[in-house]
Write a protein that binds this DNA or RNA. Structure first.
Lengths: 222, 222
DNA sequence: TGCGATTTGTCCGTATGTATT
DNA sequence: TAATACATACGGACAAATCGC
């Protein structure tokens, strides 16, 4: 019954809460709500034409996804970003993704490779169009491949949490610095190594990939 | 201004929502709410003498902690447990804890060792008393040491999520099988290796430690 | 320091949509 | 298919805490 999707296809958010959550997330990733900015419930409530109950629940879910932060009686704010946070995000991604590859390596299949190829091509072509929001989703989907291959639900949960932060930084990077299509070869090399015979080479490449990504974002933020 | 506490000392939950969350968590860990059991909002609302708004927010937070699951229009249930979930939990813990030790290794200090000793002794003495709830918290605190030593907030967040699931399985293990004081030597060896000179020996021990823990819980569940 | 305005936290009654039997 | 139980959502109200002057 469930499509084998990641959370890419909303299809339809059944509850108002889910719709609100998506709208706020879009505003954050789109740069309308900037890091550190205060979100006032009554204002949001009237803007989005929803009552405070589902709004507050949506906000709490975004807190648990790491998009927002909250303190009792002080309300919600967009998560502030720092170089330290970014550093932690990349080191965490590196550790999780290495773990994922170690698990996924013997589980790779021809169908899996075909799917990875598809996501690779989608990513490359959407990058060319300059549609930032879609490019981010494609980038996430591309990297999600290895996690899905592990068939490890808990690991996928933790990746999902990380991916939200990745989205924030990618959108920030783009909003500040413009597109970053300069990683084309890196992406293709990543795909080829996934399809190759050496796990060690793959793990080594992840370190490089992450380090380069980190440097690039840091440079853009400064 | 903040005390250097983990989440061990509630001190006082300022919001009703936080108090409700704790009460429900206690009921789950205490075995009053069993895995898979349905939680009806109106019933809980009147039992706990709170309105449904903060109750629902508390329930959502527990969902995000992995304690409960929910589906639109079908309500909340205590997270069902399976051998697969347990296996994933232990493999995830192994991966994260190895990563934590690699980071923490050069950051260890004499004060840190003193703190670890304290937690070790607390754990051993509380195990002797048979107070299950406190023993679980001490066990969690003992293992939290390495994560705190890393000074890596994002990693600590992910450990916090895992720790909630660990609590569930430990309480389940106890409720079904009785206390498990048979791990005394293992715990002491873990502490000694933390204090020792070989990171590799530590990492190897983590594998053994987790494998034994997994086998023990699986045996109790069957 | 205090005081008023703003905002969050909580409660209640009601109405509607969904799942289940 | 109908009936019931329940989750979802609304709007108004007030208390409690924070914020700004």
């Amino acid at each position: 019954m469930n499509a084998p999707t990641t959370e890419l296809s909303p299809i339809e958010d059944r509850t108002l809460r889910a719709q609100v959550r998506r709208q706020i997330l879009d505003r954050v990733l789109g740069g309308h709500f900037k890091p550190g900015e205060r979100l006032v419930e009554t204002a949001l409530s009237s803007q989005l034409r929803v009552s405070r109950a589902p709004l507050r629940e949506a906000l709490r879910e975004l807190v648990d996804q790491g998009i927002l932060v909250s303190e009792p009686y002080k309300g919600f704010r967009v998560r502030p970003v720092s170089e330290r946070d970014l550093k932690e995000l990349f080191s965490m991604r590196t550790a999780l993704e290495k773990f994922a590859f170690a698990l996924a390596w013997p589980l790779r299949t021809p169908q899996g490779f075909a799917e990875l190829d598809k996501r690779h091509d989608d990513l490359m072509s959407i990058r060319a169009t300059g549609d930032q929001a879609k490019a981010i989703e494609c980038e996430i989907a591309f990297h999600a491949w290895v996690y899905e291959t592990t068939d490890h639900r808990l690991l996928m949960d933790h990746w999902a949490r990380l991916s939200h932060l990745v989205r924030i930084y990618m959108s920030l990077h783009h909003n500040l610095h413009g597109s970053h299509g300069e990683f084309g070869e890196m992406t293709t090399r990543y795909r080829d190594l996934c399809n190759g015979g050496s796990l060690d080479a793959m793990l080594l490449h992840i370190d490089e990939h992450m380090t380069q990504g980190f440097d690039s974002v840091v440079k853009a933020l400064k």
